[in-house]
């Protein structure tokens, strides 16, 4: 039974949309995008966007998520569906996803969800200068996990 894992660790049944297949803008419920979709302003109106991964190692969905968040400014719910692997959730989170549909009943362990306490780069959820940690000067100020801006 697939479950929707939210960023806060909550595990809930996935949106009914997954079952009904009403993924159209007209439905007002949400849209499901293929990983090779181009960014379209109409999606700003969707309360929910799902990106459908055809294989867990297909990184196109990561770039698409970044573009939705940073280029389009989409602030709604963005979830990963399809071939979603728990070991990639830490990448997905930083690309702006805030939910994942997993084929599991139990949430992944903390060691898998948050393997690193901080990262080098700027990301879709952390627009502080990329170089604040670069160049070998420890920045004591921030050692917390990035949180989503939306």
């Amino acid at each position: 039974m697939p479950r929707l894992l939210r960023l806060n660790g909550e595990l809930t049944p996935p949106p009914e949309l997954l079952e009904t297949g009403q993924w159209t803008l007209e439905s007002g419920l949400g849209v499901k995008l293929a990983v090779d979709a181009e960014v379209d302003e109409r999606w700003l109106a969707a309360p929910l966007i799902a990106i459908d991964f055809p294989a867990f190692n297909d990184g196109r969905g990561l770039s698409l998520a970044v573009l939705l968040r940073t280029r389009l400014g989409y602030a709604g719910e963005l979830i990963a569906v399809g071939a979603v692997h728990e070991d990639l959730l830490h990448y997905m989170r930083r690309c702006g996803f805030n939910g994942y549909v997993l084929e599991k009943d139990a949430a992944p362990r903390e060691a898998t969800l948050h393997p690193y306490s901080d990262y080098y780069q700027a990301s879709a959820v952390e627009s502080r200068p990329a170089d604040r940690r670069m160049g070998g000067q420890p920045s004591i100020s921030s050692r917390t996990s990035p949180t989503p801006s939306s």
């Binding site: 990561l62 690309c95 080098y120």
Partner: peptide, 17 residues
Amino acid sequence: ELLRQWSTSHPEFDWLP
């Protein structure tokens, strides 16, 4: 070295073609 740090576990570019 800047490229090394920037590309380490990059959220978007660790699963390339």
